[in-house]
Design a binder for these strands. Structure first.
Lengths: 206, 206, 206, 206
DNA sequence: AATGAATGAGCCTTCATTCAT
DNA sequence: CATGAATGAAGGCTCATTCAT
């Protein structure tokens, strides 16, 4: 309808949306620029007016992605009214588990997981722009919990693994390793169970 | 000229070793069969005497991998003399964390992570041959712990995420997302801290 | 540098011309797409903008050929002013003998002869698009001759063999089985002699 | 049973039999030495103990073939008791039509037709060893007929085309251009009709 | 800004031929 | 004689990128 309106400013983003979709389906190497262009409603050549190369698109994609998920998590924590570390952690994990259960949201992190090996630059970018911030977020949360006397003072590297790991595992089990025959548990159930373990452990409280 | 030696029995395994190395470096799509052949000490054509195609090599690689890590873990658990669920879980996580800290060992699972999207068959294979067995292993361990009165009766899907996730996270942080400037914590420290959290949680025991 | 000229409409035909030339020289299997492209003044890759594969080019070639020779023969017969079966047959055979004496014209049918075994689709195509029409043409001519009382009512399958066969034999003897030392008889002589035999037989009229 | 007996003298012929079969199915270029070897009951390498190359096998095949069909035709004519040119020609054409209707017999000439373009040596060989003899045979027959006053004195080049052509056409129509749905006329019918035309022409005798 | 024809490098795969046994 | 593992050259096809329009 209103498609006749030119909005070249939006083009790069449209292309990146298309790229993410295509990369997710076929991987970076298997993705054809022509397919990305087609999905973005452009010709193959036009893509090169906005991006130098296919690899540059991947990097731009990762750069753009950086703000999204962690940004949302940071906002969530920051806007938490009462500063209760336990509640906040529970909320954070639940939020992330729910988000990552959505294949559309998880497409970007999955892409990073898949391509970081091959493109160290991607790995470094993600490490600095996403992982470092996640580590910070958890560190502050931990500080708070410790100050409140509810959290043990856990090594931040380990805390990061303990909190992010189950979420990654859930994401992978929900997508690439999912069995179409038996769908996995609902995100809320997972989030609940996961926070229980992270907070209380698997042992019966003695 | 020292070529033309005949040791056909060992060839497939030699080729797969070379393939794993090359795939890990460049990814499946970026790997050249010629490089794999060279690394295995063969000519390009000879590879095709043992494998139908490059993709077939990838599948064979994943099949072979299946037995290795999980097999070792299963053996570890099975040969545990006294059946103490807590100790066994601690030992299992420690073993896995140590194993996955070795880039040579983790090369194969990382490859699977990278290629499972693009080759659903790989994902399915790994799910059935590795993940399902890991789930079984944990389920039995959980049964034991529950019977002994030390474990809470946790949903197995969640237990799987809670135990495997941190290990995956550790593997990723040690390799693709590692910062050459600051090396991560030693595997034993990680294993210790991780099991503490998995067993006791991050909360101060009330 | 004079490349990059655009005349896409003519391209498929140019490529097919080049393909016919190269196929004729080296056979289908021996022909390199790169050579065809070079002869058509294109790069290897450009050929694939117009044809899916080398085999597809061969099929397109045969399809295109279909209309040419038989079409000309049909036109010749159709535009024959007075409908005299004997004269028309004589003219038809003479026309075909002359045409098939030209290596450029005979290149296509020779290609079909050479490749029909290996590509049954080619054989079927030629049978339906060329041979069937030739059979029709002769059948109508025979009908006319019979109606005029000058032709015996001959089985059309046999008539086809009796008329087309000598032309094929002539084509083969003029090309693949030709002796460079002693060139064969001129097409007009052959056409004359051939029609004499087809019309009157080798026997002295009793 | 008696297969244990070694008969290396027979090997070349066995290989050529296998080669003819494989060449007929896939053409020379499409034939794999390994397939020929397998059909001959040998290993790939063993074939090279008997033939220098694949092309050499093709040439040997054509050389061997040369004697077969024409040899039989020559014998047929030579052993004809009463020297009646008309009867002999009729018998000759009938014999050839019947022979060439058998796909096994026609496999070799069809192979020559298909490959002569690509291998001029094959064309030359066939021309000298087969076609020349056929021309001779017909020439002598024609001489006889003329001497007996029954044959017109026809140019031998044209006679060759008039006699051999319909047989070739019949062979092609029976094999590569055959329609599986409607089988062609029986060889005897064809032979009869063909000789009628060759002898008497298509015209009603005036 | 956009197009899409064209390029050309690159790689998987096949297979005739060789050779150590 | 025979084997079959190994070689290596060759070619079809793809696709990121360029460029004339």
């Amino acid at each position: 309808m209103a498609r006749r309106v030119r909005r070249p400013e939006a083009r790069p983003d449209e292309i990146l949306d298309a790229a993410l979709a295509v990369f997710s389906e076929t991987g970076f190497a298997g993705a054809r620029v022509e397919d990305i262009a087609a999905r973005a409603g452009l010709s193959k050549g036009a893509v090169y007016l906005y991006f130098e190369s296919k690899e540059e698109m991947l990097k731009a994609l990762v750069r753009r992605l950086a703000d999204r998920v962690v940004g949302a998590a940071e906002t969530l924590v920051a806007t938490q009214p009462q500063a209760d570390a336990e509640k906040t952690l529970r909320m954070l994990v639940t939020f992330m588990a729910t988000q990552l259960s959505d294949p559309k949201v998880s497409a970007a992190p999955r892409l990073v997981l898949a391509e970081a090996q091959r493109f160290p630059e991607i790995g470094a970018l993600y490490r600095d722009a996403v992982i470092a911030r996640g580590r910070q977020l958890l560190a502050r949360l931990c500080d708070l919990g410790v100050a409140q006397g509810t959290f043990r003072n856990i090594d931040r590297e380990i805390l990061l693994r303990a909190c992010a790991g189950p979420l990654i595992a859930h994401m992978l089990l929900s997508t690439v390793f999912s069995d179409p025959a038996k769908p996995g548990p609902a995100p809320e159930i997972v989030a609940q169970g996961l926070t229980d373990i992270i907070l209380h452990g698997v042992l019966v409280q003695s």
